[in-house]
Protein backbone atom coordinates (compact mmCIF):
# COMPACT_ATOMS: atom_id res chain seq x y z
CA UNK A 1 0.00 0.00 0.00
CA UNK A 2 1.67 3.21 -1.10
CA UNK A 3 1.51 6.53 0.69
CA UNK A 4 -0.07 8.33 -2.29
CA UNK A 5 -3.15 6.11 -2.64
CA UNK A 6 -3.72 6.30 1.11
CA UNK A 7 -3.60 10.08 1.01
CA UNK A 8 -5.93 10.02 -1.97
CA UNK A 9 -8.35 7.74 -0.16
CA UNK A 10 -8.40 9.98 2.88
CA UNK A 11 -9.06 12.96 0.63
CA UNK A 12 -11.91 11.15 -1.08
CA UNK A 13 -13.47 10.32 2.26
CA UNK A 14 -13.15 13.92 3.42
CA UNK A 15 -14.77 15.22 0.22
CA UNK A 16 -18.09 13.98 1.52
CA UNK A 17 -17.99 16.29 4.54
CA UNK A 18 -21.39 17.74 5.19
CA UNK A 19 -21.52 21.41 4.26
CA UNK A 20 -22.44 24.14 6.64
CA UNK A 21 -21.36 22.36 9.79
CA UNK A 22 -18.55 24.75 10.66
CA UNK A 23 -19.10 26.73 13.81
CA UNK A 24 -16.69 28.17 16.29
CA UNK A 25 -15.22 25.52 18.52
CA UNK A 26 -16.14 22.70 16.15
CA UNK A 27 -13.53 20.57 17.91
CA UNK A 28 -16.05 20.26 20.73
CA UNK A 29 -18.50 18.70 18.32
CA UNK A 30 -15.90 16.32 16.96
CA UNK A 31 -14.98 15.29 20.49
CA UNK A 32 -18.63 14.72 21.29
CA UNK A 33 -19.00 12.67 18.10
CA UNK A 34 -15.99 10.56 19.04
CA UNK A 35 -17.42 9.93 22.49
CA UNK A 36 -20.74 8.88 21.01
CA UNK A 37 -19.01 6.48 18.62
CA UNK A 38 -17.14 5.06 21.59
CA UNK A 39 -20.35 4.63 23.58
CA UNK A 40 -21.97 2.86 20.63
CA UNK A 41 -18.90 0.62 20.25
CA UNK A 42 -18.82 1.56 16.59
CA UNK A 43 -16.60 0.09 13.92
CA UNK A 44 -15.81 2.15 10.84
CA UNK A 45 -14.25 5.43 9.82
CA UNK A 46 -15.04 9.07 10.54
CA UNK A 47 -13.75 11.36 7.78
CA UNK A 48 -12.61 14.78 8.96
CA UNK A 49 -11.98 17.86 6.87
CA UNK A 50 -10.47 21.20 7.73
CA UNK A 51 -6.98 22.67 7.43
CA UNK A 52 -5.97 19.13 6.51
CA UNK A 53 -7.95 16.12 5.39
CA UNK A 54 -7.99 13.03 7.50
CA UNK A 55 -9.88 10.14 8.94
CA UNK A 56 -10.30 8.43 12.30
CA UNK A 57 -10.77 4.67 12.31
CA UNK A 58 -12.76 2.86 14.99
CA UNK A 59 -13.08 -0.74 16.01
CA UNK A 60 -15.44 -1.73 18.80
CA UNK A 61 -15.66 1.83 20.06
CA UNK A 62 -11.91 2.37 20.30
CA UNK A 63 -9.76 4.43 18.00
CA UNK A 64 -7.39 2.09 16.19
CA UNK A 65 -5.84 4.50 13.72
CA UNK A 66 -5.95 8.11 12.55
CA UNK A 67 -4.34 9.92 9.70
CA UNK A 68 -4.04 13.55 8.66
CA UNK A 69 -2.58 14.97 5.48
CA UNK A 70 -0.70 17.50 7.62
CA UNK A 71 1.14 15.02 9.83
CA UNK A 72 3.58 12.22 8.96
CA UNK A 73 2.43 8.66 8.50
CA UNK A 74 3.72 6.13 11.02
CA UNK A 75 7.13 4.73 10.21
CA UNK A 76 9.30 2.10 11.82
CA UNK A 77 11.67 3.27 14.47
CA UNK A 78 14.72 4.73 12.85
CA UNK A 79 18.10 3.41 13.89
CA UNK A 80 21.67 4.46 13.27
CA UNK A 81 22.06 7.24 10.75
CA UNK A 82 18.36 7.19 10.01
CA UNK A 83 17.69 8.13 13.62
CA UNK A 84 19.74 11.23 13.06
CA UNK A 85 17.87 12.03 9.88
CA UNK A 86 21.12 11.75 7.97
CA UNK A 87 20.00 9.09 5.53
CA UNK A 88 16.75 8.94 3.56
CA UNK A 89 13.94 7.13 5.28
CA UNK A 90 12.63 3.90 3.83
CA UNK A 91 10.11 3.79 1.05
CA UNK A 92 6.72 4.53 2.60
CA UNK A 93 5.21 1.82 0.42
CA UNK A 94 7.15 -0.79 2.29
CA UNK A 95 6.40 0.76 5.66
CA UNK A 96 2.69 0.29 5.36
CA UNK A 97 3.08 -3.36 4.56
CA UNK A 98 5.77 -4.37 6.95
CA UNK A 99 5.21 -2.42 10.10
CA UNK A 100 3.21 -4.37 12.62
CA UNK A 101 4.98 -3.31 15.77
CA UNK A 102 1.95 -1.65 17.26
CA UNK A 103 -0.59 -4.19 16.15
CA UNK A 104 -0.20 -6.69 18.93
CA UNK A 105 -0.95 -5.96 22.56
CA UNK A 106 1.65 -8.13 24.19
CA UNK A 107 3.71 -7.08 27.19
CA UNK A 108 6.48 -4.74 26.21
CA UNK A 109 9.61 -6.20 27.74
CA UNK A 110 12.20 -3.72 26.62
CA UNK A 111 12.58 -0.07 25.87
CA UNK A 112 12.91 -1.02 22.22
CA UNK A 113 9.44 -2.50 22.19
CA UNK A 114 8.01 0.51 23.98
CA UNK A 115 9.64 2.84 21.51
CA UNK A 116 8.36 0.71 18.65
CA UNK A 117 4.80 0.83 19.96
CA UNK A 118 5.20 4.55 20.55
CA UNK A 119 5.95 5.17 16.87
CA UNK A 120 2.42 4.27 15.79
CA UNK A 121 0.78 5.71 18.89
CA UNK A 122 2.52 9.04 18.46
CA UNK A 123 1.55 9.18 14.80
CA UNK A 124 -2.12 8.58 15.64
CA UNK A 125 -2.17 11.17 18.42
CA UNK A 126 -0.29 13.67 16.27
CA UNK A 127 -2.92 13.24 13.54
CA UNK A 128 -5.76 13.58 16.07
CA UNK A 129 -4.21 16.75 17.47
CA UNK A 130 -4.38 18.19 13.97
CA UNK A 131 -7.82 16.82 13.12
CA UNK A 132 -9.40 18.13 16.31
CA UNK A 133 -8.54 21.72 15.58
CA UNK A 134 -11.33 24.26 15.85
CA UNK A 135 -11.54 24.59 12.06
CA UNK A 136 -12.20 20.93 11.38
CA UNK A 137 -15.48 19.34 10.40
CA UNK A 138 -16.54 15.74 10.37
CA UNK A 139 -18.51 13.82 7.79
CA UNK A 140 -20.94 10.96 8.02
CA UNK A 141 -19.55 7.96 9.85
CA UNK A 142 -18.95 5.03 7.53
CA UNK A 143 -19.55 1.74 9.21
CA UNK A 144 -17.05 -1.08 8.80
CA UNK A 145 -14.50 0.71 6.66
CA UNK A 146 -11.20 -1.05 7.18
CA UNK A 147 -8.12 0.79 8.42
CA UNK A 148 -4.83 0.50 6.56
CA UNK A 149 -3.57 -3.04 6.95
CA UNK A 150 -1.20 -3.81 9.77
CA UNK A 151 -1.30 -0.41 11.43
CA UNK A 152 -3.88 -0.60 14.12
CA UNK A 153 -3.71 -0.06 17.83
CA UNK A 154 -6.84 0.18 19.98
CA UNK A 155 -6.88 3.23 22.23
CA UNK A 156 -9.77 4.51 24.38
CA UNK A 157 -11.37 7.70 23.12
CA UNK A 158 -11.34 9.44 26.50
CA UNK A 159 -7.62 8.83 26.93
CA UNK A 160 -6.93 10.22 23.48
CA UNK A 161 -9.13 13.28 23.96
CA UNK A 162 -7.40 14.08 27.25
CA UNK A 163 -4.02 13.86 25.58
CA UNK A 164 -5.13 15.95 22.58
CA UNK A 165 -6.51 18.60 24.94
CA UNK A 166 -3.18 18.69 26.78
CA UNK A 167 -1.30 19.06 23.50
CA UNK A 168 -3.50 21.91 22.38
CA UNK A 169 -2.72 23.65 25.68
CA UNK A 170 1.01 23.17 25.09
CA UNK A 171 0.71 24.48 21.54
CA UNK A 172 -1.13 27.57 22.80
CA UNK A 173 1.84 28.24 25.10
CA UNK A 174 4.32 27.77 22.28
CA UNK A 175 2.38 30.09 19.97
CA UNK A 176 4.10 33.06 21.64
CA UNK A 177 7.35 31.81 20.14
CA UNK A 178 6.60 29.37 17.36
CA UNK A 179 3.71 27.41 15.86
CA UNK A 180 3.90 24.33 13.64
CA UNK A 181 3.62 26.64 10.63
CA UNK A 182 5.99 29.42 11.70
CA UNK A 183 8.98 29.86 9.40
CA UNK A 184 12.27 29.53 11.25
CA UNK A 185 15.86 29.92 10.13
CA UNK A 186 19.23 29.03 11.50
CA UNK A 187 20.63 31.81 13.65
CA UNK A 188 23.30 33.35 11.43
CA UNK A 189 25.58 34.26 14.32
CA UNK A 190 26.71 30.84 15.42
CA UNK A 191 29.94 32.27 16.75
CA UNK A 192 28.52 32.56 20.24
CA UNK A 193 29.30 30.30 23.16
CA UNK A 194 29.44 26.59 22.45
CA UNK A 195 26.18 24.73 22.74
CA UNK A 196 25.54 21.03 23.03
CA UNK A 197 22.64 19.64 21.02
CA UNK A 198 21.18 16.19 20.87
CA UNK A 199 21.29 14.09 17.69
CA UNK A 200 17.60 14.80 17.16
CA UNK A 201 18.17 18.54 17.47
CA UNK A 202 21.17 18.35 15.18
CA UNK A 203 19.03 16.66 12.52
CA UNK A 204 16.63 19.61 12.71
CA UNK A 205 19.42 22.18 12.55
CA UNK A 206 20.99 20.45 9.58
CA UNK A 207 17.74 20.60 7.63
CA UNK A 208 16.66 24.08 8.52
CA UNK A 209 16.96 26.48 5.62
CA UNK A 210 15.99 30.11 5.28
CA UNK A 211 12.30 29.47 5.64
CA UNK A 212 11.54 26.12 7.18
CA UNK A 213 8.57 25.33 9.37
CA UNK A 214 8.42 22.78 12.19
CA UNK A 215 5.70 20.97 10.23
CA UNK A 216 7.92 20.84 7.16
CA UNK A 217 10.77 19.42 9.22
CA UNK A 218 8.47 16.86 10.81
CA UNK A 219 7.16 15.69 7.46
CA UNK A 220 10.68 15.56 6.08
CA UNK A 221 12.00 13.51 8.97
CA UNK A 222 8.85 11.47 9.59
CA UNK A 223 8.58 12.77 13.16
CA UNK A 224 5.70 14.07 15.20
CA UNK A 225 4.66 17.62 14.30
CA UNK A 226 3.91 18.28 17.98
CA UNK A 227 7.28 16.99 19.17
CA UNK A 228 9.15 18.77 16.40
CA UNK A 229 7.46 22.07 17.23
CA UNK A 230 8.58 21.70 20.85
CA UNK A 231 12.11 20.83 19.77
CA UNK A 232 12.27 23.82 17.43
CA UNK A 233 11.08 26.03 20.28
CA UNK A 234 13.93 24.72 22.44
CA UNK A 235 16.42 25.47 19.68
CA UNK A 236 15.06 29.02 19.57
CA UNK A 237 15.59 29.16 23.35
CA UNK A 238 19.16 27.98 22.84
CA UNK A 239 19.63 30.76 20.29
CA UNK A 240 20.42 28.30 17.49
CA UNK A 241 17.26 29.00 15.52
CA UNK A 242 15.44 32.28 15.04
CA UNK A 243 12.06 33.39 13.78
CA UNK A 244 12.80 35.78 10.91
CA UNK A 245 11.33 39.21 11.40
CA UNK A 246 10.94 38.78 15.10
CA UNK A 247 13.18 40.07 17.84
CA UNK A 248 15.58 37.63 19.37
CA UNK A 249 14.12 34.79 21.35
CA UNK A 250 12.83 34.56 24.87
CA UNK A 251 16.26 34.88 26.38
CA UNK A 252 16.98 38.33 25.04
CA UNK A 253 17.51 40.51 28.11
CA UNK A 254 15.82 43.85 28.32
CA UNK A 255 18.28 46.68 28.64
CA UNK A 256 18.44 48.17 32.13
CA UNK A 257 16.53 51.39 32.47
CA UNK A 258 15.00 51.05 29.06
CA UNK A 259 11.35 51.72 29.65
CA UNK A 260 10.50 50.79 26.11
CA UNK A 261 11.93 47.31 26.39
CA UNK A 262 9.87 44.63 24.76
CA UNK A 263 8.33 42.40 27.45
CA UNK A 264 9.79 38.93 27.50
CA UNK A 265 7.48 36.18 26.34
CA UNK A 266 6.66 33.56 28.98
CA UNK A 267 8.94 30.57 29.34
CA UNK A 268 8.09 28.67 26.20
CA UNK A 269 7.69 24.99 26.96
CA UNK A 270 5.99 23.90 30.15
CA UNK A 271 4.11 20.63 30.28
CA UNK A 272 3.09 21.27 33.87
CA UNK A 273 1.28 24.48 32.92
CA UNK A 274 -0.60 22.59 30.23
CA UNK A 275 -1.84 20.08 32.77
CA UNK A 276 -2.56 22.33 35.69
CA UNK A 277 -3.42 25.63 34.09
CA UNK A 278 -5.22 26.24 30.87
CA UNK A 279 -8.42 24.48 30.00
CA UNK A 280 -8.79 23.48 26.41
CA UNK A 281 -11.82 23.63 24.19
CA UNK A 282 -11.88 20.01 23.21
CA UNK A 283 -14.66 19.09 25.33
Amino acid sequence: MSQAPRRTRVRQLADSVWPGRTVNGYANLIAARLRKLADEKSTGVLPVSGPGDGAIFFRGGQVIYAESSRTPLPAPRAVGLAALGLVPSEDPQSLGQEYTGGAELVPARSVGRITGALVLTESVIDALTELLSSDSRYAKFRHADDPPAGQVRPMPVDVLLTEVQRRHAVLRQLAAVVTPDTAVAREPSLDGPAAQVSPAQWALLARTGDSTTPRGLALQLGRSVFGTTIEVCRLVELGLLAVPGRLAGPERPAEPGDGSAVPRPPAAVSFIRAVAGERGSDG
Binding site: L105, P107, A108, I114, A117, L118, T121, I125, M155, V159
Partner: peptide, 10 residues
Protein backbone atom coordinates in the same frame (compact mmCIF):
# COMPACT_ATOMS: atom_id res chain seq x y z
CA UNK B 1 -2.79 5.01 29.72
CA UNK B 2 -1.55 5.21 26.17
CA UNK B 3 0.55 2.04 26.35
CA UNK B 4 -1.13 -0.06 29.04
CA UNK B 5 0.93 -3.12 28.14
CA UNK B 6 4.05 -1.22 29.21
CA UNK B 7 2.67 -1.13 32.75
CA UNK B 8 4.10 -4.58 33.32
CA UNK B 9 7.56 -3.08 33.12
CA UNK B 10 6.77 -0.94 36.13
Amino acid sequence: MILPEAGELL
